[in-house]
C-alpha cells in the first residue's frame, strides 16, 4: 500500500484552496507523505499576499456567511498547518517564470521544481489528485 499522496493544485480560487489543503492536512495527519505541486493559478494558494484574498467563484459570494458559520479555518492557517505536518510544497518553475514570480513571493519553505520533480514523487503515490 502506498503511503504517499500526490496533489496537483492548478486553480487559484478559495474553493480550490480548501479542496487542496483539507485533503493535504488530513492525509498528513494520517501519517501520509504528502506533496503538492502548485502550477498556474494554483500558485495563488501559497502566494504570500494572494492566499489572504483568494476569490470566491462568481455567483458564490453568498457562501461567505456559511464559511464564517461553519468555523472553517482561514487558508493561511491551513497552509501553516500543512507545513507543520510536513506537507511538501513544490512550486512550478515554468509558471513562476511566465508570471515573473520568485521564491520571495511565496510562503517560506517551498521547493521549486519542474514536472519531473512532481512525477518522481507521484510515481508510487496513491491517490494522486488534481484540483
Amino acid at each position: 500500500m502506498s503511503n504517499k499522496v500526490a496533489i496537483i493544485a492548478s486553480n487559484g480560487g478559495l474553493f480550490d484552496a480548501y479542496k487542496v489543503f483539507n485533503i493535504a492536512t488530513a492525509a498528513a495527519a494520517t501519517e501520509k507523505e504528502v506533496a503538492i505541486f502548485f502550477t498556474f493559478e494554483g500558485l495563488n494558494l501559497i502566494h504570500k499576499q494572494g492566499m489572504h484574498a483568494l476569490p470566491m467563484p462568481a455567483g458564490a459570494e453568498h457562501y461567505a456567511e456559511g464559511f464564517a458559520k461553519a468555523n472553517v479555518p482561514a487558508i493561511p492557517q491551513l497552509v501553516e498547518m500543512a507545513q507543520e505536518l510536513g506537507v511538501k510544497f513544490i512550486a512550478c518553475q515554468m509558471t513562476m517564470d511566465v508570471m515573473g514570480l520568485t521564491t520571495d513571493d511565496f510562503v517560506e519553505g517551498i521547493e521549486v521544481g519542474g514536472a519531473v520533480t512532481f512525477l518522481e514523487f507521484a510515481k508510487d503515490a496513491a491517490p494522486s489528485l488534481t484540483f
Binding site: 483539507n22 492536512t25 488530513a26 495527519a29 494520517t30 461553519a70 468555523n71 472553517v72 479555518p73 491551513l78 498547518m81 505536518l85
Partner: peptide
C-alpha cells in the same frame, strides 16, 4: 471546529 481540524488536533 470543522474538517480537517478535529483530525489534525487529534493527531
Amino acid at each position: 471546529l470543522s474538517c480537517p481540524m478535529p483530525i489534525v488536533k487529534t493527531k
